[in-house]
Computed example of a mutant assay.
Amino acid sequence: MTESASEPILSRAAIAGHPLHPMLIHFPVAALLGLVGTDAAYIVTSDPFWSRAGLWLAGVGAAGGWFASIAGLIDLLSVQRIRRLVTAWVHALIAVMMLSIASLNWSLRWGKDAGAAIDPWGAAMTLFTAGFIGIAAYLGGRLVYEKAVAVDTDA
Rank of each mutant, 00 (worst) to 15 (best):
R52C: 13
A63E: 09
A40T: 11
M98E: 13
A62H: 00
W50I: 06
G59V: 08
W121G: 13
A53Q: 07
V60K: 01
M98N: 10
L57F: 03
V96F: 15
S11M: 02
V44D: 14
V44E: 14
Y42R: 01
A31H: 05
G72R: 02
G37H: 03
A130W: 03
A14I: 04
A116D: 10
T126V: 04
P19L: 11
G134P: 08
A63S: 09
Y145F: 12
A5L: 10
L24G: 07
A130T: 01
D154C: 12
A123Q: 11
T45P: 00
T126L: 02
A31I: 08
M23A: 15
K112T: 15
G34H: 02
I101Q: 00
R52E: 15
I9V: 12
S11T: 00
S4E: 09
L20F: 03
P8F: 00
V149C: 04
A150W: 08
H26V: 12
F49D: 14
A68F: 05
R142W: 07
S6A: 13
A150M: 00
S107L: 14
S4W: 09
A117Q: 01
L127E: 07
I9D: 04
D154T: 15
I135M: 06
A123L: 10
R12C: 11
V60I: 15
